[in-house]
Amino acid sequence: MTPWAAPYYFSAGCALASLQFCLFFLLESSVSSTWLSYASVTASWLTGSVAALLLPRPPAAVPTAAAAGVAYYACLAVLSARPFTDPALALGALAAALAGAYSGVFFREAYAESGAVAPLFAWENDGFIAGLAAVSAGLYLDARLLLWVAPAAALTAHCAVRHARRISNEPVQNPSAP
């Protein structure tokens, strides 16, 4: 494993957990706690993941993650301004599908780069559990603040680690070489 691999996988798990759990809580508190909310997020998430894994040419990773973040914040903005707006559920499902798609792109890329399955799943899974625990605790302390801050912070941190990893993996240029 390269030095940045573990933090990269871990931060991906954290970001995905934060986005998923915040989306669940946002919809259950501001649209409805009925099973439809959970089913639409879960089904959309899995559909996005499966599509991203099966597409012949996967979408670019960072724009997909950014699109998921934008869709989430659009949903949050709509429901903050007008709680219990039913069509916001579709926006939530879109955010879930894009986040799921990023998950598919992430696993596809990470495996293609390393070829190692066990550390990839172990670190991503641990990151997901850590993210879930942190977000659960945070929601009980200040849900409103967390809904605005956590997904952006987790996604930004993950993209920063991704960038750092990319730089560290690039071959060092020798300035004196011809």
């Binding site: 089904a43 899995l46 993941s49 499966v50 894994l53 099966l54 293609a112």
Partner: peptide, 19 residues
């Protein structure tokens, strides 16, 4: 065994099974 296309296909099948 390093075949990224196979990995993606199998993982997608597993997720579909989860759904």
């Amino acid at each position: 065994q390093g075949d990224a296309a196979l990995f993606s296909r199998w993982y997608a099948v597993e997720l579909a099974g989860g759904a």
